[in-house]
C-alpha cells in the first residue's frame, strides 16, 4: 500500500448463492486516478462497487480505505423522493457545498423546475437532479454506477469535464459505464 492510495483491495472474492462472481481480485487506487470497471451484464460490476463502498461484505479478502475518507456514491437508484418537490429533494441531500448550487442548477437547466414534484420530471431530469450529489460533492472519492445513462449530449460532456477536473484536483474515481467516455482511466475487466 503506497502513501497516497485511497482504496486498496486485496484478493477479494465474492459469490452469491454459490455463483462465483469474481475470485482473488486485487487493485489499488491512488489520488487523481480513475478506474473503469467493465464487464458483461451480471458480471458483478455493481456488486464490486458495493463491496468497495463497504455495503456488501466480500466472501474473502479485504478492502482497505484511507483513514476517514468521505465517499460520494451514485448507484442505480437515485435516492430521490418522488412525492417531494425538487427543492425539498435538494434539501434532503444535505449538500455541504451551497455556493455552487445555483451555478449547477443553471448549468443543468433545472432551475425552472424547482417547485415541481419529482414524479412529474422526465427520467433524464431526475438523473440530473441525482447528479447534483456528484457535482456538489465534498468527498475525496467518487463511486459512480453507470453515471452516463439517460443523459443528453450536453450533460454528458459537462459530467466528463467535471470528472476530469476532479481527477486533476487529486480525487479518486471508480465507475462503471458501457457508454464510451473520454475520461482517462485504467480499466478493470470482470470475466466470469
Amino acid at each position: 500500500m503506497t502513501d497516497n492510495s485511497l482504496i486498496t483491495a486485496k484478493t477479494i472474492s465474492y459469490k452469491i448463492n454459490e455463483n462465483k462472481l469474481f475470485h482473488n481480485l486485487s487493485f489499488e487506487l491512488g489520488e487523481g486516478c480513475a478506474l473503469l470497471i467493465k464487464g458483461k451484464n451480471g458480471s458483478g460490476k455493481s456488486t464490486l462497487l458495493r463491496i468497495i463502498l463497504g455495503i456488501t461484505v466480500p466472501t474473502k479478502g479485504n478492502i482497505y480505505k484511507a483513514a476517514s475518507i468521505q465517499i460520494c456514491y451514485l448507484g442505480h437508484k437515485n435516492a430521490l423522493k418522488s412525492y417531494l418537490t425538487m427543492r425539498d429533494n435538494i434539501d434532503l441531500m444535505q449538500l455541504k457545498n451551497h455556493k455552487e448550487l445555483n451555478y449547477y442548477l443553471d448549468l443543468l437547466s433545472l432551475k425552472k423546475h424547482l417547485d415541481v414534484t419529482v414524479s412529474s420530471l422526465s427520467f433524464g431530469q431526475q438523473k440530473k437532479l441525482a447528479l447534483l450529489r456528484v457535482f456538489l460533492n465534498t468527498s475525496k472519492l467518487l463511486i459512480l454506477d453507470e453515471p452516463f445513462v439517460g443523459l443528453d449530449d450536453a450533460t454528458h460532456e459537462q459530467l466528463t469535464n467535471f470528472l476530469s477536473n476532479e481527477l486533476i484536483m487529486g480525487k479518486g474515481l471508480i465507475f462503471t459505464s458501457h457508454i464510451p467516455c473520454e475520461i482517462k482511466a485504467d480499466s478493470l475487466v470482470l470475466i466470469n
Binding site: 463502498l53 463497504g54 455495503i55 476517514s68 468521505q70 465517499i71 456514491y73 448507484g75 442505480h76 437508484k77 437515485n78 435516492a79 430521490l80 423522493k81 418522488s82 434532503l92
Partner: peptide
C-alpha cells in the same frame, strides 16, 4: 421500505 426501494438507505449507510 421506501428508503430501501429508492436507495436512500444506501446513502445513509455510506455516511459516517
Amino acid at each position: 421500505t421506501e428508503d430501501y426501494n429508492d436507495g436512500s438507505l444506501e446513502q445513509t449507510i455510506i455516511q459516517e
